[in-house]
């Protein structure tokens, strides 16, 4: 705890120093550039190569998933949809070919069904894209709902203390006692039939515990800081103190935690669908696709590879973005001191 505070103090001191130059004539010849916290964070994030590559890939995957087969009634550019069965061609093998001819391949070709077809002859690219749409949707909704609730509960508990805190924190303890997968599976069993969005919201309703604890901790230390004391002394209302003074200082923690929550939610959704407590047929998700075709691995491996590849890509990129954000907001681990 104390080292964190020290790092924060050092950071703000460095800032103060940078700004202080502005008013003296002596500033000329010095190259300490005044940078705001936000600029520093952005600069560090953009320098994080892993995070930038990941962000690009993730955006591309999201674009691909939502534009290819269309979403919510808006048509996409891909010729097949994910629900109409068709005639199975060549055991449904993928027609995608990336191997150039001079290396003995078939040259670059997309073909009729680049990812192949499933047993019913549905286009597997379209199915995978649908799975990706649903998995991404669920992950983001879970992330947003979970973060909102976590921040609210954490902030209230951290700011008000007393019985509000002990009540909320005991409730958090209760929720933490229930393993995430267990409560999510129970909720999935109950609400899974009601569609992905409902599923995502109810899962978000139970996935806030870690964040609440984190935010409470931040609030507990921030509420003792001088600027909060000052605001309170000036007669600011609690809501104003929470929203204008404390919350902006926890943006870093919240952003990082929310990102990691999304990464967890992707895996949670796929796991639930795999167990049969998540998304139900006829709709599909990446986890459901893997689950459905796990036994086809020896004979028709593409049915297994494609959804798996997309799960890993999405989870991996989100994790890397989270790491980049963490480094950007809290560079203390990267500093080596004499």
């Amino acid at each position: 705890m104390s080292t964190e505070e020290k790092a924060a103090a050092a950071a703000s001191a460095a800032n103060g120093n940078g700004n202080g130059n502005g008013n003296g004539t002596a500033a000329q010849g010095l190259s300490i550039v005044a940078r705001t916290q936000g600029q520093l964070v952005r600069r560090r994030f953009f320098r994080h190569r892993g995070a930038m590559i990941s962000l690009t890939i993730l955006v591309l995957v999201i674009l691909l998933a939502y534009t290819s087969i269309g979403f919510a009634g808006i048509p996409g550019w891909w010729i097949w949809n994910y629900y109409t069965p068709g005639k199975v061609v060549n055991r449904g093998a993928p027609t995608l070919s990336l191997w150039p001819t001079f290396l003995g391949g078939d040259g670059f070709a997309i073909g009729e069904h680049p990812f192949g077809q499933d047993d019913l002859g549905r286009d597997y690219f379209a199915l995978t894209m649908r799975g990706a749409q649903i998995s991404i949707l669920i992950a983001f909704v879970v992330g947003i709902v979970g973060t909102l609730i976590g921040v609210i509960i954490g902030a209230l508990a951290g700011y008000y203390r007393g019985w509000v805190e002990s009540g909320l924190m005991r409730f958090t303890d209760v929720m933490i006692t229930i393993p995430i997968l267990v409560i999510a599976a129970v909720l999935g069993q109950k609400f899974g039939g009601a569609g992905p969005l409902v599923l995502a919201i109810v899962i978000g309703l139970v996935l806030w515990t870690g964040l609440a604890r984190l935010i409470r901790g931040e609030f507990l230390s921030l509420r003792e800081k001088e600027f909060v004391e000052a605001a309170r002394a000036l007669g600011a209302k609690p809501t104003r103190i929470i929203f204008r003074h404390i919350l902006p200082n926890t943006v870093g923690v919240i952003t990082v935690a929310a990102t990691l929550l999304i990464a967890n939610a992707i895996l949670l959704e796929t796991a639930l669908s795999f167990l049969g407590f998540g998304v139900r047929a006829p709709d599909t998700s990446l986890g459901l696709l893997v689950s459905t075709y796990q036994n086809a691995f020896a004979t028709r491996p593409w049915l297994f590879w494609w959804p798996g590849l997309f799960i890993i890509t999405i989870a991996l990129t989100v994790n890397f973005i989270g790491d980049g954000l963490r480094d950007a907001f809290d560079p203390r681990q990267n500093r080596v001191r004499a």
Binding site: T270, A271, F274, Q294, F297, I311, I312, A315
Partner: peptide, 21 residues
């Protein structure tokens, strides 16, 4: 670090199928 992130992002059931094979 990269491997750790990869393992973080692997669904168990997916890697299990590969391992079985």
């Amino acid at each position: 670090t990269f491997l750790a992130f990869l393992f973080f992002s692997l669904p168990v059931f997916w890697i299990a199928v590969l391992m079985k094979q």
